[in-house]
Design a protein around this nucleic acid. Sequence first.
DNA 1: AATTAAGCGAGACGGTACGTCGCGTCTTAAG
DNA 2: CTTAAGACGCGACGTACCGTCTCGCTTAATT
Lengths: 221, 221, 221, 221
Amino acid sequence: MGRPRDAGVERVALDAAARVLAEHGHQALTVDAVAARTGIAKTTLYRRWPTRAHLLAAVAEAALAPPTVPRTDDLAADVAAALRALSQALTGASRTGVLADLVAAATHHTELRPTLHRLGEVRRATTRDRLAGAVADGTLPSSADLDMVLDQLLGPLYLHALVTGDELTDHYVGRLVDSVLAGAGFAAKGRAAPGPTGTGSPRDASTTTHPGTPVAPRRSA
Amino acid sequence: MGRPRDAGVERVALDAAARVLAEHGHQALTVDAVAARTGIAKTTLYRRWPTRAHLLAAVAEAALAPPTVPRTDDLAADVAAALRALSQALTGASRTGVLADLVAAATHHTELRPTLHRLGEVRRATTRDRLAGAVADGTLPSSADLDMVLDQLLGPLYLHALVTGDELTDHYVGRLVDSVLAGAGFAAKGRAAPGPTGTGSPRDASTTTHPGTPVAPRRSA
Amino acid sequence: MGRPRDAGVERVALDAAARVLAEHGHQALTVDAVAARTGIAKTTLYRRWPTRAHLLAAVAEAALAPPTVPRTDDLAADVAAALRALSQALTGASRTGVLADLVAAATHHTELRPTLHRLGEVRRATTRDRLAGAVADGTLPSSADLDMVLDQLLGPLYLHALVTGDELTDHYVGRLVDSVLAGAGFAAKGRAAPGPTGTGSPRDASTTTHPGTPVAPRRSA
Amino acid sequence: MGRPRDAGVERVALDAAARVLAEHGHQALTVDAVAARTGIAKTTLYRRWPTRAHLLAAVAEAALAPPTVPRTDDLAADVAAALRALSQALTGASRTGVLADLVAAATHHTELRPTLHRLGEVRRATTRDRLAGAVADGTLPSSADLDMVLDQLLGPLYLHALVTGDELTDHYVGRLVDSVLAGAGFAAKGRAAPGPTGTGSPRDASTTTHPGTPVAPRRSA
DNA sequence: AATTAAGCGAGACGGTACGTCGCGTCTTAAG
DNA sequence: CTTAAGACGCGACGTACCGTCTCGCTTAATT
């Protein structure tokens, strides 16, 4: 019973928060700022999000409308597309900032970890399905450990975004996908399966498109 | 001219900081706290570390005495050993907390990114050498992209430590190393080289030791 | 028309309020607290008492069941008895607290002043009657300004309760009554009428009983 | 050691507080308001006055520059002058408001009671001296209990200011002084000592001047 | 019996101030 | 010139009560 929550509050608050984020960075994304901008009382905000961190999480989650990645019959291309979408979500000063803040906050507020996890998970689930499909139709060997594959795909993205700060270029993502999929036993389409010794090295030529991105030498870090 | 800097300050401060960290978590690791505990004036602390973040970085770096990983002729084992050492450095509430804080801080204080990077880099360099050696003696194909391999090895560790919060078990590290090395064309010693088609499925049995760690099914997430 | 007000609400609310007051002091006597304790909705409370201050006033008034002060032929004793009853009502941390809050609230909510006034008034009226009777039978001179006498009787009580925080001992009240009545021209019974020159000094020995209270020297403040 | 407190802070803050008080009443006298007006950080304010109540007390005390009441050879006039000065300090919406707030606050923050007390005490001390002098030169009988006299003088003032809200007119103060002093055995100057029965009633004609104030009938309360 | 005008519990909401915490800068005196 | 000491400005935090509001349900008196 009682007066029902005004659903508009969430919407307005998150909108404003997103705008603050875009305009002034994640440093400026304070509860006070959102309250001031929206006219929503701080009390009301704190009723939804008991902590600045929770608000951050909500903002991050809201910003992540899972884009429908089209499914073609090119496994590597599909996976790369999904990963590039995630890369974009992780890239950009403010976005990375929010993510980093969230990562830091999640060490106390463990209840935020699911959310944090879910951020990558949305794509991960789709990708996992795609990979499972590949296993089903024989494109990938049935022995493939999909979770391990996903870790190897996602891990490097977070590593670059959070730790090294390197750019996540489309080219890098392409190479990563090729490398990991090949490791998982993927025979690139229109190609003979590489020999067991791996000398045939399926990695020198990427099976996916890297639209116009030059091969930048990675920082040795 | 003037009074020389007291060299003891660094040591005392970092010691105290480490203790605060262990006792009360990284939230409590404030400049004021260190000052209060040690009797060192805030001014003095700020003279060394211009920012709380810099202090954090120093603490993190100090905590990371690079352990000498012995080099055997078992590539997978050596790599796994190095990664397990890193895993331990990333694991544990307070350690992960500092890392996360540092990651967050590095989004503003870009000058900290090198330090942050170096944390993993210490092992990375060793591991890179080990991998290069493997290429040299033919254990790994010369086509292997070592940086990519390292990304795939380190990335998942950070992913688990920072994002999912999953434990980094020795078992997981073993599987990861096996998977990545196999993908890079490594033929596990005393074994038929597994083809990428995976018929022989090299992953079901790890070539590295997992001391007592039962095979726990990972959350599908 | 419409549903009639539940008469029980007043009772329950005031009871609970009194209990809160006794247990946690007047600071804790908030509308929310009463609502939470009783299960009465805030709306309902505000329907009766438009303001916390009004609730306070009600609590204070309810706590003041006017005790019947017996009328003897000893004027000083009767007046002292009435004043002692009032003293008790003003004394004690929580009671004084409510009074003080009420005093503060009355500076805005002038509509509360009558209530505030009435708190002392109940006794005042009785006492005034008693004094008027004394004038009638010649115990007090007809020239006595009763309101002024009452001010001099009540004022010091409030002064001590609210400002100095000194205890209101029975002994003090006795001395006060003697002093004021003597000043008003009262000849203590069975005694020579003391002249204002005070040679007879009627004040050194009180005409009223001070049960067991030792003569404590007042702080010179 | 350490940086010394900026003495200007007290001055500026109290000045601003006094201005807020005068302009917007004691309700508006918040720590935030003072901080905003002066540019002094809230932290700094709280370093001096740990509570809004303490700030209020300081404001009240600062506003009470003890005016030098001239000493003539007219006891009643001197006392009345002192009391009128106090009356003015207690009168006026904002001043009474502060006092009332202070009275309320003192019930928790007992450390404020001395200050509260001192507010009246400043005049009380002077007046007490004047009375003692009167005792010394025989104007008052040596039996006079000065503290009791003072209570009877000050009590009614607080009673009116805080409880009844009646105005404290010069005329009332005059009558009060006459009444109390007469009760204490004061023979008004140039007058025969009133007879011991008090029929002579020194109160019908005040010995002090009431400049232009008509005799207003007191509210029956 | 149907209508209707309150009363009531529940709890969201806007508002205002509170008092606290940590950062990084500064001022002073001591070595 | 370094230190210890500690005041200071700044900005945000999360909390507490206030008094108002919107719900849905209940309870009479009125039609």
